[in-house]
């Protein structure tokens, strides 16, 4: 990559803190949709003891979509993290280190978001009804 291109990629104008919170936001959307979906589903059935396999499947499928999105964001973060090699701890006063730091933090946050999403989906393996 040319030095001009490099410079352009790490320029402040191309950075945003929003990338950091995207993966946790995806967890939040999945979580809230699962909660709201389950609440509506359970309120529409007459017998709370009946199995709600379809709903459980939806939550897990939607969870897989969420995980896919989190994976994409993690990959974007990973590319920033590995920008021109770069060794941690990313504490130098350069735009490149700032770029790598934001990438690394994005990867880490994607990781914890993925775990939380998997936890949500796992709970659906054990709960079979609305009781």
């Amino acid at each position: 990559m040319s030095s001009h291109g490099t410079h352009h990629e790490v320029a402040e104008e191309r950075q945003s803190l929003w990338l950091l919170v995207l993966s946790p936001s995806i967890w939040a959307v999945h979580f809230l949709a699962s909660y709201a979906g389950a609440a509506v589903w359970c309120s529409t059935i007459d017998d709370r003891a009946q199995s709600v396999d379809a709903m459980r499947l939806w939550i897990v499928l939607f969870g897989l979509v969420a995980l896919l999105c989190i994976g994409i964001i993690a990959r974007i973060g990973w590319r920033k993290y590995k920008f021109e090699g770069g060794d941690p701890p990313f504490d130098k006063d350069t735009a490149e280190d700032r770029h790598r730091f934001l990438g690394a933090a994005t990867v880490l946050l994607s990781g914890v978001s993925a775990i939380a999403t998997i936890y949500s989906c796992l709970s659906m393996l054990f709960i079979r009804n609305c009781l």
Partner: peptide, 19 residues
Amino acid sequence: LPGVTLALFSAASQSVAIP
């Protein structure tokens, strides 16, 4: 509340222990 809801929130309550 339905068990499904409890399970979801229990899962989130466990996952917050990680960070």
